[in-house]
Amino acid sequence: MAKIGQGDERWIVADREDGTNVNSWHWQEKDAFEWSRERFADLIGAIEFEDGGVRCRCTGVTALTGEAYVNRRKGKIICGYELDLKIGYEGTILDGGKTVTGNVHFPYIADENAGEEHEAKVLAAGEGPDDRKVKEIMRLVALPKMAEGVAKFEKELAKGGPGGEGADPNEAKNASGDKKPGDVQSNAEKERESRTDKTAPLSQKSHTIRITERFYCRPRDVCDALMDGQRVMHFSRSPAQVRPEPGPFMMFDGNIHGETLEYVPGEKIVQNWRFRNWKEGHFSKVTITFREPEPGNCFVDLVQTNVPETDAFDNETVMDTTEVGWKQQIFERIRQVFGYGA
C-alpha cells in the first residue's frame, strides 16, 4: 500500500515527454456509435433472398439510437453498448409483382446480453394479405440471418470495433519483456496518428463511466435511496448529508462530496461529484436517469464524465475504484438493504 502523499509504484507509469501511450497502459475511450451504424448496414442491411414465391431484401438502417463505445487499457479491450436498431425491408410477390415494406426492430442489443438471442420483431407497414405473407417469411428466413449479423457485430466490437482487431500481439511481447528495437517507436507513431488530443499526454485526460443497473421497484424508490439523507446513511452505514433538492451533499463521511445541480424525482439527478482524494478542485459530473418499461421494473442509467485518470497521489486506480464503488458500495447495497434486488 502506498504511503500518504506517495503513489503506489505498481500503478505508476513514468512520464514521457511525447505523451506516448506505451503498451496501451493508459485508459483510452473511443465512440463506436457511427461505426456500429455502418457495420449493421453492411452485416444486416443488405440481406437479400427468395423464398415461398417472395423476393425479400433489407433496405438499410432506418433508425439507430443508444450508445456504443470501446475502452482500452493495458492492452485489454472493454466494450459497452446499448442499442435500439431498426432495419427496413421490402418484399415483392413474384406472382403479381406487388411490393410491400416494413421494419425489423431489435429493441435492445446490449453488452449485458452478448452471445444471447436478442429480441426482434417484424413490423409490417400494412395489414393486407401480402403484408402478412412477407412478414411471416421475414420472420422465418430473415431473422436467423440477421441474428448471425448481430452476433458478428458483437464479436467485432469485442475485438476493438473501429480501427481495432483485438489486443495487439506486440503488446504482449512488450509486457513480457521481449522487446525488439524500434517496437516502442512504432507504437508511438501509431499512437500519435490515432490520438485527437496531441497537445497533452494521455495521463492528463479525463474519462467517462457508463453504468446501467436494474431494480425491482419504482424509479422514485431508487431516487429516495440516493437523495434522502436518512436512507443514504442506512445503506452506506456512515455519516451523510444529502437532501432531495439542489445544493451541497456529502456521503461516506465526506469521502464523496459535491453539489446537486438538478433533481427531478423519479426522472433525473445531476451532480458535481468527487472523491476526497482527487486533485484539489477537480469535480466529475454525474447524470442519473431512470427508465420504467413496466411498473416495478426500473432501469437506472448513470453517466459520469470528467473522471480523472489519477488521484492526488498519482495512483491510476481512479476509474476502477469509482466504477466498482458505484456498483458494489451504492447500487448493490441499495438492493440488499431495501429489498430492490434484481
Rank of each mutant, 00 (worst) to 15 (best):
F331R: 01
D224Q: 10
D228H: 14
Q271A: 10
K121L: 14
H207W: 12
P293R: 06
Y69A: 04
G102L: 03
A142Y: 07
G5T: 14
Q6T: 09
N306R: 14
V300Y: 04
D42H: 07
C58S: 07
S236Q: 15
P248Y: 00
Y216K: 12
G247M: 06
G5V: 00
V22W: 04
A240Y: 06
Q28K: 15
A158F: 09
V61S: 04
R72W: 06
E165V: 08
G161M: 06
V134I: 03
R132S: 13
H234P: 08
C56L: 07
L64M: 05
T59A: 12
K145D: 00
E127A: 13
I12L: 06
R195Y: 08
R243W: 03
E38K: 14
G258M: 09
G115L: 15
V70Y: 08
E171G: 13
E119N: 09
G97H: 00
S36A: 10
H257F: 10
G247V: 02
T199C: 13
N306K: 14
T289G: 01
F252C: 02
S24Y: 12
R55H: 15
N174M: 04
E245N: 06
K190H: 15
G341K: 10
R220V: 11
T260V: 12
V300A: 04
L94I: 04
K198S: 15
E245W: 02
D131F: 04
W11C: 13
V270L: 07
G19S: 01
I269H: 04
F331A: 08
D301I: 13
L302G: 05
